[in-house]
């Protein structure tokens, strides 16, 4: 039943140094090819993680930027500016004779 196994065990493969060199070279090329195939994928995944981290950072910055915009707009509120102008800097509305209008042609 296991005759073919016995036969196979008895068989010896004779490889000449030249053939061995060719086989070795093909093996190395195969490995390089495999590496060349896998490497971009590994690189891509790595870059995708980097991109996601940057995208998250961008989201947070945009969120903060939006909050700052709201703050800026509420600081620009005319009610507040009028209050500050009158109370803190003692500004007053100009009288008729104090107004000078300049038009640029």
């Amino acid at each position: 039943m296991f005759e073919w196994i016995r036969q196979a065990a008895k068989t010896r493969v004779h490889v000449s140094p030249r053939k061995f060199g060719v086989i070795l070279m093909f093996s190395v090329l195969l490995m390089i090819g495999a590496m060349a195939f896998v490497w971009p994928n590994v690189k891509m995944v790595k870059m995708a993680y980097e991109y996601q981290s940057l995208a998250q950072q961008q989201r947070l910055l945009l969120k903060e930027n939006n909050l700052l915009k709201v703050e800026r707009e509420s600081l620009k509120s005319l009610d507040r500016i009028l209050f500050l102008a009158k109370k803190h800097t003692d500004l007053q509305s100009p009288e008729k004779g104090q107004i000078l209008t300049v038009f640029l042609k």
């Binding site: 000078l100 209008t101 300049v102 038009f103 042609k105």
Partner: peptide, 15 residues
Amino acid sequence: LNEPAKGERVFFLNH
């Protein structure tokens, strides 16, 4: 709206 009143000083300047 830059609408000068009567008697108000108005100047026209060239750009």
